[in-house]
Amino acid sequence: MTPAPVIVSLPIADRAISYRFYRDGLGLEAVGELADDGLPEPLQFVVNDGLRLMLVPTGGFGWVIGRHEVAPRGQSECLLNLTVDSPVDADTVVERARAAGAEVITETSDHPWGYAGVFADPDGHLWMVSAAES
């Protein structure tokens, strides 16, 4: 497996729930060798050719970052943005995420910067879905 130039790592509470959410809710492909629980370890998803998303159980995440504490659920230090081709595609992604367990924070709509909506994944990480064209 060739490493991606950029890997974004997020702390998660439950590997199986997060796996299903990112596979079913965002349609991302998981990569890697299967562990005893039947899920890839490390749990990574291909976002595009240059970016992977790695989901790390909170205990393991703390091991990696040392004394820095993981932000409590509901307190986000970043907003992840997923750009799609059109407003219809943005609506589709947000609805698919909702069906997979996302909490929609801001429904998709027109904004001064374009068409976008925001949802939280099962661990509270915020994702904005924005259309490249409005």
Rank of each mutant, 00 (worst) to 15 (best):
V8K: 10
S9T: 13
S9F: 05
L10C: 06
P11L: 07
D14A: 15
D14P: 15
D14F: 15
A16E: 13
Y19H: 14
G25S: 05
A30G: 01
A30W: 06
D36K: 14
D37E: 09
L39Y: 04
L39A: 04
L39G: 02
E41K: 09
E41H: 15
L43C: 14
Q44A: 08
V46M: 03
N48R: 02
D49Q: 11
G50N: 15
L51C: 03
R52I: 03
M54G: 08
M54H: 10
G60M: 13
W63K: 04
V64Q: 11
H68D: 14
G74A: 03
S76T: 12
S76V: 08
E77Y: 03
N81D: 02
V84K: 07
D85Q: 14
S86Q: 12
P87V: 12
A90V: 15
T92G: 04
V94E: 01
R96S: 03
R98M: 06
R98S: 08
A99H: 14
A100K: 11
A100R: 10
V104G: 09
T106F: 13
H111M: 01
A116E: 10
A116C: 05
G117Q: 02
V118E: 03
F119A: 01
A120N: 05
P122D: 04
G124H: 09
G124A: 05
G124Y: 10
L126N: 01
